[in-house]
């Protein structure tokens, strides 16, 4: 069984929601990314989303754009990111890891080669922001051969007909985009999210994670009432860029501080 499915089964048995932090691989540098993955796992991440930086991130707001630009200055590549995941797995960290990418870097790496090397390194799945179900068929088959999940995005603007197509291509879990727009922290989660999750349930038994705009423990708790997991991206990335404003001068306690920040996004840790 894929680690993602295993994790969501465990969450279901424990009757709790999943927490999915997102960071951009290579910002501030790859060694830190590796330590952060291990730390986020320790702090209770259910699945870790690792952003593959791209030169033209049309689905991202300013925070993740800026983080991606910082990562690209370190000449980050798909190959280097897979290497980091491999090192994380060697440290006995077994938290599911998915890559969050645009299509072109994966296409240039080679779809078959990606599936085979990602599986070898210990990656569990991939989400591609600009790969809609009409274009996803071939890649899904290639990934499935290596037991890798293709996580599909659903949006509030998607028609029922589209949700059906999306769910037919999806594996691992479905990522419900909470609102029309780019990534970025908001104080409130859009009410469109709950409605979208309810509509998605008609077409799939896969777990559903909600993302875009979730930035506080209260929002995570709210999301858990109707979805299986909450994704937090820009809030963590913004904190990283604040603490390491100069990526060449990363404070020694950086990983610890980001770990604490992420840990505090888990609702149960607020009261303790």
């Amino acid at each position: 069984m894929n680690r993602i499915t295993e994790e969501f089964n465990k969450l279901k048995t424990a009757k709790r929601g999943g927490f999915v932090p997102f960071i951009v691989a290579g910002d501030p540098d790859l060694a830190t990314t590796k330590n952060l993955i291990v730390k986020l796992a320790e702090k209770g991440a259910s699945v870790i989303e690792l952003g593959v930086p791209f030169s033209d991130p049309v689905a991202d707001g300013v925070t993740i754009q800026a983080s991606g630009e910082r990562a690209l200055r370190n000449a980050i590549s798909v190959e280097k990111i897979l290497q980091i995941v491999d090192e994380v797995r060697r440290e006995k960290c077994e938290t599911p890891i998915i890559l969050f990418s645009y299509f072109n870097p994966i296409l240039q790496f080679g779809l078959e080669k990606f599936a085979s090397e990602a599986a070898k390194s210990g990656v569990d799945g991939i989400l591609i922001t600009d790969l809609v179900p009409e274009e996803a068929g071939e890649f899904r088959r290639i990934l499935a051969e290596k037991n890798l999940a293709l996580i599909m995005l659903a949006a509030p603007t998607s028609s029922d007909e589209r949700l059906r197509k999306i769910c037919a291509q999806a594996s691992g879990f479905v990522y419900a985009v909470s609102r029309a727009g780019v990534t970025g922290a908001r104080n409130e989660t859009s009410s469109a999210a709950e409605n979208l999750v309810a509509r998605l349930r008609k077409f799939t038994d896969l777990p559903i994670a909600v993302g875009f705009g979730i930035s506080t423990a209260a929002q995570v708790a709210e999301t858990w009432k109707y979805a299986d997991a909450a994704v937090v991206g820009s809030a963590i990335v913004a904190e990283m860029m604040k603490i390491a404003a100069n990526p060449d001068k990363v404070p020694n306690d950086f990983v610890e501080r980001i770990g604490d920040f992420a840990g505090n996004l888990l609702p149960e840790n607020i009261s303790t």
């Binding site: 049309v58 809609v132 995005l153 998607s158 589209r162």
Partner: peptide, 14 residues
């Protein structure tokens, strides 16, 4: 050709 866009844009594009 084709369509490679975020899902949010697919309904307006259709």
């Amino acid at each position: 050709g084709g369509r490679f866009v975020p899902e949010t844009l697919m309904s307006p594009i259709e």
